[in-house]
Structures are given as structure tokens and as C-alpha cells.
């Protein structure tokens, strides 16, 4: 038996909304330690990795007797989650050898209980081993700032060049009709931590990435006030949104490299 009771359905709604356009079918791997999801987009350029830890406060109850994989169509899941109120408590439930996943939405005042079942799918997904490495550069910034940068620069071109150095980070785009550059200076003196821009630098990095994917990742902006970008030259960037009281959602994007 698998049963996970999440205090805020809005968290799961936001996660699925941010994933469903790039990753249409995905396996939720459930174990006693929590729920993970790893999926690649159809072109194998972008990957998402979600981790929701069972021992965090976001789960009121969590039970998973046996490791199970729940193959779900995320577009369908998003439709089901739209039936939940943002303040509803949501329970996910499945048997040990599941064919269906049950969603139960309990309204805060206890007056409304909704139950939906969806059929599970057999998804043949290729799991990649992601090495736990130290990155040359880790930039932390307000998530809305990163969203704005990606959105602004995508007006002019398909690729952004991210240039991390000790003063800060530069984002540049050069398209056929024009070019743009946004310079973010390191700023760790502002009052609120979530408004800070910080750059942890072991080595400077200059790397290009497809804006189409970065813009898609920023659909996760509402999950977190901050986002971190981890970069090493000639390796995929990691865009991480922490999820309070649950874990994190990470996106990996393969770089554009001059062949």
C-alpha cells in the first residue's frame, strides 16, 4: 500500500503544471524515503528530477510498504489536480501492484471530499545516472528574476550565453535582428535572503543554452522564491527550485557546444 497525504495541493499542482509541457508521461518512483521522478524530454536535451522526501513536514502522513512505480500521463494528472482547491489536503493512494492511482481532495473545512481514479501506464523510460559533482559555479537569484531574464532574452534569439565570473553573471543573446545583454551583479547585502544574487565561484564558466528549454523550466517559478543555477564548462546546467517542506525540483539542460 502506498499513501501520501500532502498538506497543500497547490504544491503538487505547481509541480505538474511546470512539467507537463516538456515531459508528458513520467514515472513516479515511490519508496519509504519519498517520491522521486526523473524524465527526459523527447529530444533528450532536458531532464527533470523531482524529489519529495517522506520525512519532510509537507507530508502529513506517508506510507509506502513496497517500492512501486506509478506511470502517469502528466497532462491527465494536471486536469485532475485542477479539480482540487488550492488549500485542499491531497492524498495519493495506490495498491502494491497498482493499475490505478487514486486522488482524494479534502477541503479545509471538511465539508467536501472528492475522489478521482486514473489509470496508470507502463512507461519505458530510460533512467540516467547523474553524477553528484561539484560545479565550477553556483548562482543563486530570485526565481522571478531568472524568469524575467529568460523571457526578455528569448525575444531576440534562441540561445543564451551565460557568463559567470567573480563580479556576477552575464546573460547574452545574439540574434539575426539584434542582441541583448543582462548583467547581474552579486548582491548579498540586501535584507531579504530571497532577493539576493550570490555567485559561488571556483572557476569562471561561459556556456550557451537553448532559451526554449530555460523558459520552459521557469514555469516552476511559483514553487520557490529562489532558484540556483549550477554550471561547469561543457556540462549540463542544473536549474534547481527548492520546494519548502518537501525537497526540490531540478532541471538539467545539455549545453550548446561548438563542434
Amino acid at each position: 500500500m502506498f499513501e501520501a497525504k500532502m498538506l497543500q495541493s497547490s504544491v503538487l499542482k505547481k509541480i505538474i503544471e511546470s512539467l507537463k509541457d516538456l515531459f508528458s508521461d513520467a514515472n513516479f518512483d515511490c519508496s519509504s524515503s519519498g517520491i522521486t521522478l526523473q524524465d527526459m524530454d523527447s529530444s533528450h536535451v532536458a531532464l527533470c528530477y523531482l524529489k519529495l522526501r517522506s520525512d519532510e513536514e509537507g507530508f502529513e502522513d506517508y506510507r509506502c510498504d513496497r517500492n512501486i512505480t506509478l506511470g502517469v500521463n502528466l497532462v491527465l494528472m494536471s486536469k485532475i489536480l485542477k479539480c482540487a482547491g488550492n488549500d485542499d489536503v491531497i492524498t495519493l493512494r495506490a495498491e502494491d501492484e497498482p493499475n490505478i492511482l487514486t486522488f482524494i481532495f479534502d477541503s479545509k473545512n471538511g465539508e467536501r471530499v472528492s475522489k478521482y481514479d486514473i489509470k496508470l501506464m507502463e512507461i519505458d523510460s530510460e533512467l540516467l545516472g547523474i553524477p553528484d559533482t561539484e560545479y565550477s559555479c553556483v548562482v543563486k537569484m530570485p526565481s522571478h528574476e531568472f524568469q524575467r531574464i529568460c523571457s526578455n532574452l528569448s525575444q531576440l534569439g534562441d540561445s543564451v550565453t551565460v557568463d559567470c565570473h567573480k563580479e556576477g553573471v552575464d546573460f547574452k543573446v545574439a540574434g539575426e535582428q539584434g542582441s541583448g545583454a543582462i548583467k547581474l551583479k552579486q548582491n548579498t547585502t540586501v535584507d531579504k535572503e530571497e532577493d539576493q544574487v550570490s555567485v559561488e565561484l571556483n572557476e569562471a564558466v561561459t556556456q550557451s543554452f537553448a532559451l526554449k528549454f530555460l523558459c520552459a523550466f521557469t514555469k516552476a517559478t511559483s514553487l520557490s522564491d529562489t532558484v540556483s543555477l549550477s554550471l561547469t564548462q561543457d556540462t549540463p546546467i542544473v536549474v534547481e527550485y527548492p520546494i519548502a517542506q518537501h525537497g526540490y525540483l531540478r532541471f538539467y539542460l545539455a549545453p550548446k557546444i561548438e563542434e
Partner: peptide
């Protein structure tokens, strides 16, 4: 022109 790489180049199958 810069070429888009694939994740399979960086991460191995588990």
C-alpha cells in the same frame, strides 16, 4: 554555429 548536445553524452544509462 553552436550545436545542441544531448544529455546522453554526459550521463550514462543506469
Amino acid at each position: 554555429i553552436k550545436g545542441q548536445t544531448s544529455l546522453n553524452r554526459f550521463f550514462s544509462k543506469q
